[in-house]
Amino acid sequence: MKKYTDTGKKDTRSGFGAGMTVLGRTNPNVVALCADLIGSLKIQEFIDENPERFFQIGIAEANMMGIAAGLTIGGKIPFTGTFANFSTGRVYDQIRQSIAYSGKNVKICASHAGLTLGEDGATHQILEDIGLMKMLPGMTVINPCDFNQTKAATIAIAEHQGPVYLRFGRPKVANFTPEDQKFEIGKAVLLNEGTDVTIIATGHLVWESLLAAEALEAKGISAEVINIHTIKPLDEEAILASVAKTGCVVTAEEHNYYGGLGESVARVLVKNHPAPQEFIATNDTFGESGTPDQLMEKYGLNNKAIVKAVEKVLERKQATPSFNMQG
C-alpha cells in the first residue's frame, strides 16, 4: 500500500494557529475573536501581528457569535475561537439565527473536539457537534486530520463565502499530509487504493485508518482509505465510486454515531448503492476523564477497532451475495 510518513507529532489546533498567522498576513479582512482561550487556540501570533483585528470577548460565547455576525456587516471575515463544546451546543440558537439563517460569513473554529481532549472529562468532550452543525442549512462542516491539513483548511475557508464549522483537536497526532497541499472544500482525498473494503474516516481517525489498512494488508485484505475532511457538503461521488468497487464500508470518526459522518455516508449508500457498513464512533454515550490514548482504546476509536470492524463488514458482505453483484 501507499506509504505515509509521520513527520513528527503535532496538534491540529496549532495547525489552526499557523493558518491564522498566514491569514493575518495575507487577508486584511480576516478578524479573530476568542472567548478567553487564546493559549488553547494557538492564535497568539495572529494577535501579536494584528492587535487591532483581534477581539477578546471574555467568557461570553453567545455574545461572541453575535458580534461575529455583526462584524460581517462591513465586510469582515470573523473567525471565532473556543472549545468545540462552547462553539456549538452552548450557542446553537445564536449560530442558527444570527449566523446560519442570516447567511453570515462567520468561521466557527472549534478546538478540543471529541474524547481526545482527555482529562477534563465529559463536560468538555463534545461528541455531538458534527451532528448539530451539519443540520443547519447552509453550514459547511470540516474536520481535518492533521496539522498540515488543518492549516490548509483554515486558509481555504477564508475564501469561501458563507458560514463554516471547522473542527480540530488538542492532542499531538501524526502529521502526514503534504505541507503544501491545496485544500478543496467538499473534495474527498483518496489516500490508499484498495479493492476489498472502503474505510471512510475523518479527523484523528484518518491516521488510525491508515494504520489499520497496513495491518489488514498483512492479513491479505486490500483496504481503500478515504479522508473525508468535509462532512458537509459530502463528496458523494467519491464515496459511491469507491463502494462500487469494494462493496462494503467502515466509517470512522471521533463522534457519536448519531449525527456523525457515518450517518451521512449511510444516507448516501441507502439512496444510491446499498452496502454493508460498520461504524467506528461512540455509541450514544458521554466521555470521561483519561488520557487520549486510553479513551480512544476504551471507546473503540483506534486502528485495532477499525481492523475488527473491517473483518466484520467483510463477513457481512460475503454473507450477502447480492451486495457483491453490485457495481
Partner: peptide, 27 residues
C-alpha cells in the same frame, strides 16, 4: 434588513459587531 431576529436577546451583540466593523473601516 441586515440580520434575522425573533429569537430574543441577540440583536445587541450583532449591533456591537457592526459598530466594531465601522471602527475598523474608519467609517
Amino acid at each position: 434588513v441586515r440580520i434575522a431576529s425573533g429569537s430574543l436577546g441577540q440583536g445587541m451583540s450583532v449591533a456591537i459587531g457592526a459598530a466594531l466593523a465601522k471602527k475598523l473601516n474608519k467609517d
